[in-house]
Amino acid sequence: MTISVQFSGVCRFYGDVKAVDTVDLSIQEGEFFAMLGPSGSGKTTCLRLIAGFEQPSAGHIEIFGETAELVPPYRRHVNTVFQDYALFPHLNILDNVAYGLMIRGIKKAERYAEAEQALDLVQLPGYGARKPSELSGGQRQRVALARALVNKPRVLLLDEPLGALDLKLREQMQDELKSLQKVLGITFIFVTHDQGEALSMADRIAIFNQGKVVQVGSPEDIYQRPDTRFVADFVGSSNVIPADFADKTNTAGQWASLRPEAVRLVDSGGRTAVVISRSYLGAMTRLVLDINGIRLNALSPSNQALPADGEQIQVDWDSADVRLMDSST
């Protein structure tokens, strides 16, 4: 497999602030790769380093084997879908989509034909004559996608592209982006702070924290087997508990993660817990439990009989669901 983007010890400093701190990554060709992390964790800076808007303070970046440092954005065969779309307000939709082709000097008839095709691809046929201000957020998002894809980039960068959309539209766009990526077969690099989005769309996920990559892996890896406390906390609503509490065979001082859905209500023979509060989430209900002073979240199907607040119940879990983590981060 070809590597499309390779980071080797890449740093980006702003004065004393280490926005990106010694990041090593290799992203395969044709992969849907998500960069996930809280705001300020360096994921967007990494994207901007690939696009060429930022230059690394140290380290080396290769795009399809070619050195990318000091290469201006307009010489990179990489296109970006910006967070707030960045459509040109003075151009109509067709001219927006055809912009990259116009810059390359492709004749009007030809570039308009290609732009129309790109608009078809994102399911906005016939919208060419409108101005960006006349479109809804979701439509602008598709135009931004068409404007990038019409240039047939080797790598497509998406900077929180679904952040400004409402939930329904976001879910629909997630499916569309995923299937579009399968059809086109180009590398998608997707920045998001929404773990659900990353888990549902990506082939692989890199988790960012404080400028560093803390874990890279498939969505299952990340969700089931978090390496660190931070990953367990950030991805989903994992319980982080002392290891010797979770599983009696383990040594003290270490931490372990336990998924809330792994906590089962049992009739007898488990641990005694007190229900602190309940919140109804639709299909599931979240119970906040107290076991000898340790807080634990449990997710139970809503259609079974659930205990009331303050009730004493018995809970248990399989020791296989307990995941030991690095104690450091």
Partner: peptide
């Protein structure tokens, strides 16, 4: 003029 429009133009190949 939002700064990201200038970035978008550059991203789309414009010198």
């Amino acid at each position: 003029v939002p700064g990201n429009l200038l970035e978008a133009s550059s991203d789309l190949g414009a010198q």
